[in-house]
Design a protein around this nucleic acid. Structure first.
Lengths: 154, 154
DNA sequence: CTCGGTGCAAAGCTTTTGCATCCGC
DNA sequence: GCGGATGCAAAAGCTTTGCACCGAG
């Protein structure tokens, strides 16, 4: 059996357990949304997910999408990013390396990177201030140089 | 003359120069907004600034507030933060130490902190990926422990 | 059978836009 | 006086909410 199938099964088990522990119902809509999220690569917004599911005959309401994504975030299966000013972007989170984002302010390209020092800072600052840091958001705003940016001034 | 007065004069000179260089007009509204921003401590949102100015008989339109804040951000006199999902918060930036934020997810308190390693990461990652990083946003999401948090479950 | 979940549409909120008027240069 | 800036209100866009109906437990 391909690794990808194992992963989605594992994720479904985690979600099932989470729903059980919280006394929440295991509705088909919630699992359709989970499947669609994990079938995607990279970032997506609510509207895109909503349209895709409608096209696939797994239609759910926008309200249910928002509600379910909140649940998935709560059990760490999904992460939310606020790149722009008014549009939340989401991303599957289980089994993928923790990473941060660099945004090009010229062409709006998003590059993912990973630096272990971020985690150290998170830990140290938490200890210093007397907080337990659960997670973080680090965004670098940058200008691409000409040769790196096929979309410049797009 | 108090230091505070020197600072606002300095900031006004910077803004005047910026507007001059860009060929933008030096309107009274723009300087009223600059004054009000620098009279404030900590974070504020557009609506609060708008209401305060209306109460002080320096009434300007919301559109002008948004427009002017964008200019002030462009010349590094103001910084914008996206803490919540739908509300941008702003802060004066000139002459204040660069810092990042820790948010308590229990009581929504915001704590500022400063860690020099963040700047190193910004520089290193930029060099590695071939970007020039202009600025960054780092937010730590944390849980306060009981004794640190007078607002718990507020 | 109960009550939480869903769907739909309307409402809410922040931010942007269009257009007539105003004023810095 | 010209063209950019402002003010106002309407529009836009994402997210939340209210309510009737449905279906998991």
């Amino acid at each position: 059996m391909p690794i990808i199938d194992e992963k989605i099964d594992q994720v479904k088990r985690i979600f099932t357990t989470y729903l059980g522990n919280k006394g929440l119902r295991k509705t088909s809509e919630r699992f359709f949304i989970l499947e669609e999220v994990y079938a995607r690569d990279g970032h997506f917004d609510v509207e895109t997910l909503y349209i895709t599911m409608k096209d696939k005959d797994h239609s759910v309401s926008r309200a249910t999408v928002y509600n379910t994504l909140d649940l998935l975030i709560d059990c760490d299966l999904v992460s939310r990013h606020q790149f722009g000013q008014n549009l939340a972007e989401y991303e599957k989170a289980y089994g993928y390396k923790q990473h941060d984002h660099l945004l090009c302010t010229e062409c709006h390209k998003v590059v993912e990177f990973c630096d272990p020092r971020v985690h150290n800072i998170q830990k140290n600052v938490g200890d210093l201030l007397g907080y337990e840091v659960m997670h973080h958001s680090l965004i670098l705003y940058a200008n691409c140089k000409k040769e790196n940016c096929e979309n410049r001034n797009k």
